[in-house]
């Protein structure tokens, strides 16, 4: 096979303005970060709320949360993205439709669709982690919280959630990593995040291996840094004197 390896390709001109290929990746990284962080914020808030709802004795609240999880977990992410991007906008009020389809920069409307899609999809997964974390606490803790006079809301706020939060840091970290990986679906609706930039670089330069290797390295570095940060967080909030999970 006749392949011209060229690792300097990233510093060469793309032929568009005075951009080099590396600039594309930097733009891509910006989109990926903006997507993942916004979607994660949505997932964390909504998923946390749903996770708490699933542990409440109220049948309606826990039922709603259960339905949500089943719906969003069982429909493939790509299908959900196409629904949010191609179908849902048609059912919005006319003025919002015009704004979304015509006034907005296409990149921004794609961005909104992916954030909503990925946020709601990941919320279902966060919900399950939070629920498991709360249910893993000894039953006596909620009894003790109520016995000192806390309302249900106060029991969660002061006793259950601070403990569950610590338990769910490791599984939530891996959900956070998934958000970064899943954000690459945005390339399918034309949002120029890292994967899309790599594809474009491959097409323009014909250095397909280098193009995707750099994308891989960027994802890898992102993941490693997040894991590092989260393990520092985990150590910082560890409860003194408490056995590590799985101990006892």
């Amino acid at each position: 096979m006749n392949y011209n390896w060229d690792w300097n390709i990233f510093f060469k001109s793309t032929g568009i303005g005075n951009e080099i290929y590396l600039d594309w990746y930097i733009t891509g990284l910006g989109w990926t970060l903006a997507l993942a962080l916004a979607a994660w914020l949505v997932a964390l808030l909504l998923g946390g709320l749903l996770g708490v709802m699933r542990t409440l004795p109220n049948k309606w609240l826990s039922g709603i949360a259960t339905c949500y999880v089943e719906l969003f977990r069982n429909v493939p992410l790509l299908v959900q993205l196409f629904i949010w991007y191609f179908v849902v906008p048609d059912y919005l009020p006319e003025s919002v439709q015009i704004w979304f389809k015509q006034d907005l920069n296409p990149a921004v409307s794609a961005y909104i669709s992916v954030v909503v899609c990925l946020g709601l999809f990941t919320a279902a997964r966060v919900c399950e982690q939070v629920r498991t974390g709360i249910q893993a606490l000894p039953k006596g803790q909620s009894n003790a919280a109520q016995a000192v006079g806390f309302t249900v809301a106060q029991s969660y706020r002061y006793v259950l959630l601070p403990q569950a939060f610590r338990v769910v840091i490791p599984p939530l970290t891996s959900e956070f990593l998934n958000v970064f990986k899943n954000s690459s679906v945005a390339s399918l609706i034309g949002l120029m995040e890292i994967l899309a930039q790599a594809k474009q670089t491959a097409e323009f330069s014909a250095n397909i291996f280098e193009a995707f290797t750099l994308a891989t390295l960027i994802y890898f570095t992102l993941n490693m840094s997040i894991m590092k940060v989260m393990s520092i967080v985990e150590k910082r909030v560890r409860i003194p004197g408490l056995m590590v999970e799985g101990g006892k």
Binding site: N143, A145, A147, Y158
Partner: peptide, 21 residues
Amino acid sequence: NLPKLRSRVGMVFQHFELFPH
């Protein structure tokens, strides 16, 4: 008002149930 009533009744459990955090 059960929380209020419970706040006036002290309870001690077999497994202590202090708040570990």
